[in-house]
Simulated scan of single mutants.
Amino acid sequence: MDLGLRGKRALVTGSTGGIGWATAHGLAAEGAAIVINGRTPERVEAAVARMRESLPDAIVDGIAADLGTAAGCACLIERLPQVDVLVNNLGIIGMQRFEDVGDEEWLHMFEVNVMSGIRLSRHYLAGMRQRDWGRVVFVSSESGLQVPADMLHYSVTKTAQLTVARGLAEMLAGTGVTVNSVLPGPTVSEGVGRFLSRMAAKQQLDIEQVKKEFLGRMGPTSVIRRFASPEEIAAMIVYVCSARASATTGAALRVDGGMIRAVM
């Protein structure tokens, strides 16, 4: 199936690894011109090289910028004034008791997970509206709906993303621009992998044991009963970025392995 992405320019934030990398790879495989983003030139250059090795015909570039800051977003926008597809994938995760999370950590989590997408969407949507075509996707989480008690600051940011995405979709009613959220469940992304590795080291446990315990505690309702792969999440993201998904907007699309116990 041709997804109608050939010739479209796509920016995937936080795409040097994990879900972001898998999404960028999937879009590039469909013929989109990809811009990979990460915080450091070394990581970005390595990801661009890996993409070119995997897909020799891919049109791929990279921009190093810390999008968890207003200055980083401004730097990226200056270098990349227009895109057709924006995937707001950048995010950080944390697990702490509510009482132990200070103001600085709350604000940092919000800056990275929410404000990065707001700042970029605010800029790029103007061009999409003018061209009457565009795709914006916020990579949220099932934690935005099922709130883990010890991940409250993270969950708040993921719920905020759902609200922003729905509001933008409403704002763009009647245009050829769609805005959606994708809600992964537990996924062995790069960030989650580091998070689980730290847990394993702290508890002096094997990583597989930590994954099993984490899923048992955080995802007892999982139907697939395993962590998803980044590629499984990326498949949904790539589809909603496509021309084929023109009637899907304002949606919160679950790729949660059936964790959320609801029929809708």
Rank of each mutant, 00 (worst) to 15 (best):
F98R: 03
L80E: 05
N89V: 13
F98K: 00
L80M: 02
I118S: 08
I118E: 07
E99K: 09
G117S: 07
L80F: 07
L90C: 01
N89H: 09
V112H: 08
G117V: 03
L86T: 10
R79T: 01
M95H: 11
L86I: 10
V85T: 05
L107W: 14
N88K: 03
V114S: 01
L76I: 10
E99V: 12
N113M: 06
Q82Y: 13
Q96D: 12
F110Y: 13
R79S: 03
I92H: 00
Q96E: 14
I118W: 14
L107R: 06
R79E: 13
E104R: 11
W106V: 07
E105V: 13
G94Q: 08
V85M: 05
M115A: 08
C75F: 13
F98A: 12
G94C: 06
G102V: 02
E99A: 14
V85I: 15
E78L: 00
Q82W: 13
E111K: 08
M109C: 07
V101Y: 02
G94P: 10
D84V: 00
M109Y: 05
W106Q: 07
E104D: 15
E104Y: 07
I118G: 06
C75L: 15
E111W: 00
I93S: 04
V101L: 00
L86G: 05
F110K: 01
D100C: 09
I93G: 10
R79G: 05
G91L: 02
Q82V: 12
D103S: 14
I92Y: 04
V114Q: 09
S116C: 13
V87N: 03
V114E: 10
M109T: 09
L86W: 07
I77E: 14
E104C: 10
M95D: 13
G94M: 07
L90A: 14
D103V: 15
V83S: 04
I92F: 00
I93A: 13
E99W: 06
W106N: 08
R79F: 09
L76P: 10
N89A: 04
V85C: 01
M109N: 09
I77Q: 09
E105G: 08
R97S: 11
V83E: 02
M109P: 04
V83G: 08
